[in-house]
Design a protein around this nucleic acid. Sequence first.
DNA 1: AGATCGTATTTACGCGCGTAAAGAAATGTC
DNA 2: GACATTTCTTTACGCGCGTAAATACGATCT
Lengths: 343, 343
Amino acid sequence: MDEPKIRNMEEFAAVSGISRPTVSKYFNDPGSVRQTTRNRIEQALERYDYRPNIYAMNQNRRLTKNIGIVVPYLADPFFAEIARNIETLVTEAGYRAILMSSHGKPQQEIDNLESLRSIRPAGVLLAPLGRASNRDALAAFCRDVPTVNFDCNVEGLGEAFVGHNNEQATELMVEYLVRTGEPPVFFEMRTPPNPNANKRRIAYVAAMERLGHAPEIVQIEGENWDFEGIGYREGARVISERALQSNTVFCSNDRLAIGFLAAAYELGLRVGRGEGCALRVAGHDNHPYSRYTCPTLTTVSHNYGLIAEKSVNTILSVIAAEDGGGERDMTLLDGELIMRASA
Amino acid sequence: MDEPKIRNMEEFAAVSGISRPTVSKYFNDPGSVRQTTRNRIEQALERYDYRPNIYAMNQNRRLTKNIGIVVPYLADPFFAEIARNIETLVTEAGYRAILMSSHGKPQQEIDNLESLRSIRPAGVLLAPLGRASNRDALAAFCRDVPTVNFDCNVEGLGEAFVGHNNEQATELMVEYLVRTGEPPVFFEMRTPPNPNANKRRIAYVAAMERLGHAPEIVQIEGENWDFEGIGYREGARVISERALQSNTVFCSNDRLAIGFLAAAYELGLRVGRGEGCALRVAGHDNHPYSRYTCPTLTTVSHNYGLIAEKSVNTILSVIAAEDGGGERDMTLLDGELIMRASA
DNA sequence: AGATCGTATTTACGCGCGTAAAGAAATGTC
DNA sequence: GACATTTCTTTACGCGCGTAAATACGATCT
């Protein structure tokens, strides 16, 4: 890096011996200029410290190089993990990732999208809150900005949906639990914030009936995203009231299961599949903390990597296609049984 | 909202009956125009859907309204929680928060700062990785951009530091543990990624000596940010090798403790302070998951709210002051003992 | 009523870059 | 070597807004 500070593309073009429009072309797509000129530019880039002004660029470009990522709750390591995967892929594709969390609040979700709208992103990857989401506002946003919906499906939202195959995954677990012990009861919130929960309940019922067992569902109260707290409180209640019709509990998600396990521990119930165990508990999601529960949690894993990859590829191709045309395609990725100690 | 789309500030100024420069002034600071003109602008704002182009604004403004937030590891709910607090305050102050995670990787930390630099933020709130950070690169960034360093102190970095009082907090816990049972051994990583760990070890030694006990430190191997995994693996080793000189273990942080508790559970050790318990385990941080461990984790809490508040206030005043002048001031916020079941 | 002060308006320029058009130069083809 | 083709240069304009300077206006005060 030399001393003379480069102030703008004009000056940089001068020192690299190339015209400004060509330099501009290079920055928009390095492959669009001849190899020899590209070399000259890149040599100059090593000698001088210059980067195009991002605001001036985006002001005039029809499409920015920004991709928004909106998740419902970043303090949940599950979403943090998916977001991390997506962010990496987005960056590798040469885009700038803007990560936003709705913190479980519908208004924040709207605000995030409005904020994104003002930076004119090329595309957005959106994991909606679900039940609490303002559908109309989301739909209005998706009409204006290319959007791929992931994790939590909202009918008709965005150009595509990429998510977890709740049916397959639930069936996998039910089958396993039935095969290895008492048929499970299903433990969930009465009004889950996320529609995945509904899919899982329905799949549970279907799987149980298919296997010739009567489905039993325990629906607990709780309104917010403090799933562990809800699982703990209601788990303790359900256990002490002996409201469980089976010694096997299939929680709608790992966070509820984490709370449930804490409650079981506190009440002195031994959880696991060996003798001497009073209860089997299973979860769903393969949450980052599920391997450190006591006992470690048997669960069904999302395919984190593939969900991220497919989501990013989809939004990139939508951006490249420039039209919102075509069907809204849906991709469901299969889950995998993670056998640990709790069931 | 009426039909005629407003395309720019010129048109908006026309329909609101105010000159464009005055409208510009309004958007930069609504309080800087007369009440009557302000009313007229805000009336027009309700009738027409207009927002200034963010890129054109930032291109010319000397200072943008962006504030960067960089944390070492967002998949850690501890940082997610602090980030959430900070983000909220930044937004309330009328700034746009740009949240970035270094994912535990020094190169990513540099990349984040470089990326931030290109959007010319008014200020940055930086929680560095710590030991692995590239000090020179961070320092170079802080020379150019007003920065407040938080959580993990790097000597001389930024205009100020806001963080947790590790000395006070550690002493609090040591005193409690000594008072209620056997003096604790200190369980930590030999080469912790974060300098807070060093402060805690030193404070532990000092507190033990002050109370007339010989400090005992167990240093375990492990290089990355998978603290639970390290605590689990090494906790299991230490327990089975009977390498602990006390029945009381004070873990350097909650994530290690979470792993340790999982190991103890698996090995059949009962943790807690009642009779029949083989071990007491304490942590440090009041990690969001520490209330759901088995048993629930006794720990020392950060003052999340105050750390966020003080950090944001500091960066705002640095931005307002426009100079990097003055001392680098340090704020340490006291921790609070969180008594739960594990110790 | 005139003087005074705080605001608003008018005019004008600049920011750094995208992009279009026309012509020049380099490259590839036979 | 002549030609077609690709790529670069030159020139020029526009994007939407910040901001400065000079001027005009209105409210307030004496």
